[in-house]
Design a protein around this nucleic acid. Structure first.
Length: 841
DNA sequence: AGCACGCCGACT
DNA sequence: GTCGGCGTGCTC
């Protein structure tokens, strides 16, 4: 579709008309900004294209913006400034995405600029000095113009050149952007955005024949000359076998991996060195393509009968439903079913998006998918650099990636023809963005996307969210269930260990029950692996004086400081504050300052003392902070060099280890009794998911030990029996009684200020106004959250419940926004910050 | 979000 | 006398 101004306003004859563009700016201001379109730009400017604009006082800042609207009505009250540059000849943001941006900013009550900020990889955002580099994969014999040839030669000499530098080379009158565009089209060069973070291409050292020997005749002469040097001749022959230069001389340009030539013997190494010295070969470096498809493609996926049946059921449901919930127990082999469905969707010519929670994406799943889909699959992950994200973005536009696996932000990729979206581990709370706006839920956004593009959505989970299961029960989603593990594997036996009782009998060793220790020991003897789950990092969560009960607290937040033994310091898990461990109590001077409670670090420590011969690893936020630490831990554990893995909820997600036969769970009680209406659901999900890590292969029935002070709790019985239905029935009744989701929508308003009185005043006023309008039953609070002070700001929460059927959610949101705006314009309260979290978890 | 303008403390 | 603290207000 041509959206340029000329076609939009073709009815306007007057050449003197000035055009304006309403732009989305990457700033948290709830409106669009109107700029003037310079005369010559009107022809090329399109909705969805990026532009560069001056912004702020004295043109202080330069921003990248996206064109949201084009029109010819001058703004009133101010003089619009000019757009300074157009970055895209074609829309970078599709009309689908613009629609998505608008919908999200309204639905999630945030600024459209915030949406744009998360949606675009920063490589497409930061004031961009675009750079160009030679594409090492370029297949030479393409028709090139003399100018192109010249630029290419220059580019080969440099790692990368900017448009400006290329402009100087071409000289006056040359049209650099046009030439670059053409070269990009021929895949001869790669354009990337220069960002703060330097572009560090992965380099591979390759070799090729010196130019002198590219032609057949010279090559023959060379081989004759090497007749008396059999080793060297052999190396050249080997090269020619891989790169048939004698048939297609241009192939030589691509060269060959050095490692391929001297793979087996040491001798060829020295011969090669000589050949290089004598300028028969030359070495050069090229950029490693990011997602090399050097993986062995997997043979056809074989589905078991149960899997095939499930896949067929899902397809059948899709005939009538747009959304299907797939409830398959842990280890039932959901991935194979997904692969089957993805292949079907791709065969139908549509795009596919496979969403995974952040942490699950780094694991084995990606490798498995890559074996099947190779370089047709894009990977979108936050641990990837910006350039890699931009590559995926462009790959979606170009059609190279018909299929993308990604984390929540992958919903922002420029899809225009989605046929299927899979939301794996649908219940995962990490799909909801918590901290910066937009506070969106990727699962819900995905459903919106699918709705617009007539795609099907498959929600997959072993422990579906109550919300989704309820929709399925109501017939609004399809439902397919699979209660059989893959192969002959069976669900693990789950046993409860009464720690109260063991304490009385004095059989506990620190935090470990004798029952758990026994199992750990036999597992160690059998050389099988164990996983220990404690959802709390650090050494211990409190440091307390035994004499006066003083507790170490964060100076900025209303929480106790956690003791981290490795760095011998106290740390706040909310603001990051660190301080030294006090030798004596700062209040009474007593030396009896002790740590209380335990986290993963302490468990690891004690475990090592109990089992000195065991190899133990810990996986939590603290041990996975380094770039590849997460993968490294998984690899080591997978490789079998590790006997026990201690971890936080990080270990519950999607890990698939063959040799794990024991899972131990500490402090289940703390999970169950968390003061939140979702605590039961969460505890069930978490404990079921961790348990699911055990006994995933036939022949080894797994065992799970849950330590609790009260084994009678009904939820624990449900976990043992894997009774999701029972949990659902009970919980949904509770939700209905108290009008919680899925029977209502929740909006949480958080009011923040450094002065507690001001914060409270604003919160009370807001709550009063909302109660007046919505009724008492729909407004809860203001109340202090569990942690009422973070970073020296005092917090108050107001929770609003809106029934799905009875109320117009849009109107309510608009009303809330108005009341917030009122408060923010009040002289005394304007410095408070109020954030809305729609569908808060 | 940034950035300028603005009105009050400890420094050459 | 100034440098600079960060409160507050605006950005097409």
């Amino acid at each position: 579709m041509d959206t340029s101004l000329r076609t939009l306003f073709s009815h306007l004859e007057d050449e003197e008309v000035t055009f304006f563009a309403d732009l989305i700016l990457p700033i948290p201001v709830p409106r669009l900004f109107t700029y003037r379109v310079p005369r010559g730009m009107a022809e090329i400017l399109k909705i969805g294209a990026r532009v560069i604009v001056p912004f702020g006082k004295n043109n202080g800042r330069v921003l990248t913006a996206v064109v949201a609207r084009l029109h010819n009505s001058p703004p009133t009250g101010y003089q619009a400034r000019y757009i300074s540059e157009v970055l895209d000849e074609y829309p970078l943001v599709t009309s689908y995405q613009l629609e998505l941006f608008r919908w999200m900013s309204e639905y999630y009550m945030c600024c459209i600029g915030d949406v744009m900020n998360v949606a675009l990889p920063s490589g497409l955002k930061i004031s961009s000095q675009s750079k160009v580099q030679f594409n090492p994969d370029f297949d030479y014999p393409e028709l090139l113009t003399p100018v192109e040839e010249m630029l290419l030669t220059e580019l080969k000499k440099h790692p990368a050149l900017s448009y400006e530098e290329l402009g100087r080379l071409v000289g006056e009158g040359g049209n650099v952007p046009a030439v670059i565009k053409s070269l990009v089209g021929k895949k001869a060069v790669i354009v990337f955005e220069e960002v703060k973070e330097k572009y560090v291409p992965k380099m591979v050292r390759k070799i090729r024949l010196h130019r002198n020997y590219e032609e057949k005749e010279q090559l023959l002469v060379l081989l004759q000359r090497l007749e008396k040097l059999p080793k060297q001749q052999e190396v050249v022959m080997r090269y020619l076998r891989h790169v048939p230069v004698q048939i297609t001389p241009s192939l030589n340009q691509k060269g060959l991996d050095k490692s391929i030539l001297n793979q087996d013997d040491e001798l060829s190494q020295s011969s090669l060195t000589t050949l290089i010295k004598n300028q028969v070969f030359e070495t050069f470096e090229v950029i490693q393509p990011r997602f090399a498809d050097n993986l062995v493609p997997q043979a056809e996926i074989r589905l078991t009968d149960a899997q095939r049946q499930a896949a067929q059921d899902i397809m059948a449901q899709f005939e009538r439903q747009n959304i299907v919930l797939f409830h398959g127990i842990t280890g039932s082999g959901k991935t194979e079913i997904y692969i089957d469905l993805i292949q079907q969707a791709l065969a139908g010519g549509t795009q596919v998006l496979y969403l995974l929670p952040e942490i699950a994406l780094t694991t084995q799943i990606v490798v498995r998918l890559q074996r099947v889909f190779g370089d047709k699959m894009g990977i979108y992950h936050s641990k990837f650099s910006d350039n890699e994200r931009v590559e995926v973005w462009k790959g979606v536009v170009s059609g190279q990636y018909q299929f993308v696996v990604g984390v929540r932000s992958a919903v922002f990729l420029p899809f225009d023809n989605l046929g299927l979206i899979i939301v794996d581990e649908e219940h995962e709370t990490s799909y909801k963005q918590h901290d910066p706006a937009p506070r969106y839920h990727a699962r819900d956004v995905a459903m919106m996307l699918a709705h617009w593009q007539q795609a099907k959505v498959l929600l997959g989970s072993a422990t579906p969210s109550l919300e989704s299961y309820y929709q399925a029960q109501q017939g609004r989603y399809g439902l397919v269930e699979l209660f059989q593990r893959f192969g002959d594997a069976t669900l693990p036996d789950i046993m409860l260990v009464n720690t109260q009782q063991e304490k009385k009998q004095k059989t506990m060793k620190n935090e470990f029950s004798s029952a758990l220790l026994d199992e750990l020991e036999t597992n160690l003897e059998r050389k099988e692996q164990s996983i220990l789950f404690q959802n709390r990092r650090g050494y211990s969560p409190y440091m307390q004086c035994e004499d006066c009960d003083w507790t170490a607290e964060c100076p900025n937040c209303a929480v106790s400081l956690t003791y981290h033994q490795r760095d011998a310091e106290l740390r706040c898990h909310y603001c990051g504050h660190k301080e030294a461990v006090p030798r004596v109590c700062p209040v009474c001077g007593s030396t009896k300052v002790r740590t209380i409670g335990y986290g993963t670090e302490k468990l690891e420590d004690q475990l090592q003392i109990i089992f000195p011969q065991a190899r133990i690893l810990r996986m939590d936020l603290d041990t996975t902070r380094a770039k590849n630490a997460y993968q490294q831990i998984i690899q080591e554990f997978e490789g079998g060099q590790v006997d026990m893995l201690v971890g936080t909820q990080m270990i519950t997600k999607g890990l698939d280890f063959d040799n794990v036969s024991l899972v131990g769970i500490f402090d289940a009680d703390r999970l169950i009794h968390f003061p939140d209406f979702r605590a039961t659901e969460r505890a069930f999900q978490m404990l079921t998911q961790v348990s699911g890590r055990a006994g995933r292969r036939a022949g080894r029935k797994g065992k799970v030990l849950i330590q609790t002070t009260n084994p009678q709790q009904t939820i624990l019985q449900k976990i043992i029996e894997n009774d999701y239905r029972g949990l659902y029935e009970e919980e949904i009744q509770e939700r209905q009684n108290f009008n919680y989701p899925p029977f209502s929508r929740l909006i949480k308003l958080t009011i923040r200020h450094t002065d507690k009185a001001i914060s409270l005043q604003a919160a009370e006023r807001l709550a009063a106004e909302l109660t007046d309008a919505l009724g008492e039953s729909r407004v809860l609070g203001p109340e202090e959250p569990l942690v009422e002070r973070i970073r020296n700001q005092f917090l108050f929460d107001i929770l609003i419940k809106i029934e799905r059927e009875k109320m117009n959610v849009k109107a309510v949101k608009a009303y809330i926004q108005d009341r917030i705006n009122d408060i923010l314009t009040d002289k005394g309260l304007r410095q408070v910050s109020i954030v809305a979290d729609v569908d808060c978890l």
